[in-house]
Simulated scan of single mutants.
Amino acid sequence: MNSNPLEPVIRAAGLDGVLVSFATELSEPANRAALAFASAVGRAGIDGVEECAPSLVSVFVRFDPLHLRLETLTRRLTSLLSGQDWYDAPLPDGRRFVQVPTVYGTDLAPQLEEAAQAAGLSPEAAQQTLSDARVRVQTIGFAPGQPYLGLLPQEWDIPRQTALTKAVPEGALVVAIRQLVLFSVSSPTGWRHVGQTALKLFRPDSDTPFFLRPGDEVQFVPVSRDVLEQLRDDPDGGARIEAIR
């Protein structure tokens, strides 16, 4: 039996797209379903499908309408959906566990105390829960290579700020609504800046320009400022990477 109260929904998205949605709001099962189904669509090798990209709870499928009819694609996707319970599906192969050295608080990440207060925690407890969390890359978006990660424990269901921070630097770790975002470029944000890394997420000259991929798991391991400064010249920011088997 499907463990999610909602059934997947297929909708047309423009003239050459289809959106397969597994929920109306973020949850672990819905994100799992999106990641697993996107991988399955890729393996299915449907002629005429040109792109398949998962988001938090949906999968966007772009197709060539000159070679594949919407009705035909919808039938193929419906058949694929009926093959298993995607909310309890195994996550795709090839995922990695990445441990990223992170400075929490200080002037490098000045909103840790504010975020901790919003979560009802002391700064020390906030750092502990954030650094203990092993979070999944749920999707890549907003900026090139930029991951949304979660879900954090319930106490981190804190709102965004009512005003924007003018800019956080590349490598900034920010938090809101039970998620973390790690910034691939300097940008304004309404999320609170709680940690700072030296990791370069977007590498346009590389064969794999996005360092993290949906489904990867990440832990932000606390280090001192001195250690972080020594890692600035390493594109991986000192990250330790191992395959998830």
Rank of each mutant, 00 (worst) to 15 (best):
L182R: 11
V100K: 03
A53N: 04
G105I: 08
E113Q: 05
S27M: 10
V227L: 15
E229N: 01
G237Y: 02
P123I: 02
E242Y: 00
A118G: 07
S206K: 06
V168M: 07
T162Y: 09
P54T: 07
V168F: 02
I140C: 08
D233W: 01
L130M: 01
Q219E: 12
R192S: 14
E113C: 04
P222F: 09
A119E: 08
A89V: 04
E28L: 15
A118C: 04
V41A: 03
V135M: 09
Q128Y: 13
L80Q: 13
A116Q: 02
A33E: 02
L35Y: 00
E71W: 03
P144K: 03
P159Y: 13
E217L: 10
K166Q: 10
R96Q: 15
P209D: 07
T129R: 12
F211L: 15
V9L: 14
E229P: 02
Q128C: 10
F142A: 15
D234H: 05
V227S: 13
K166W: 00
E229V: 08
G171A: 08
A38I: 03
V41L: 02
D132H: 12
D132W: 10
T72I: 12
P101T: 09
P90H: 05
L56M: 13
A143E: 10
F211T: 02
T72H: 02
R245H: 14
V175L: 10
S184H: 07
D93H: 01
L66M: 09
E217C: 06
R178N: 11
D157A: 12
G83A: 13
D16F: 01
L152P: 06
A109V: 04
S21D: 07
P92M: 07
R232D: 03
L112Q: 07
I241T: 08
V49S: 05
D88N: 12
F202D: 15
P144V: 02
F142Q: 10
E28M: 14
A109Y: 06
G141K: 07
S82F: 05
R240T: 08
Q161V: 09
A167K: 14
E7K: 12
G190A: 15
E217G: 00
E50S: 15
F183I: 01
A30T: 08
E113T: 13
P65D: 06
I177G: 04
P169T: 03
V59R: 09
P147Q: 03
I158F: 14
S39Y: 06
Q161I: 04
S224Q: 11
T74E: 15
G171F: 09
L112H: 00
T208I: 05
G94H: 11
Q127D: 00
I10P: 09
Q111I: 00
K200M: 11
Q111L: 03
G48A: 09
P159A: 12
V9G: 00
F63A: 03
G238F: 01
L108P: 08
V61C: 14
L199M: 15
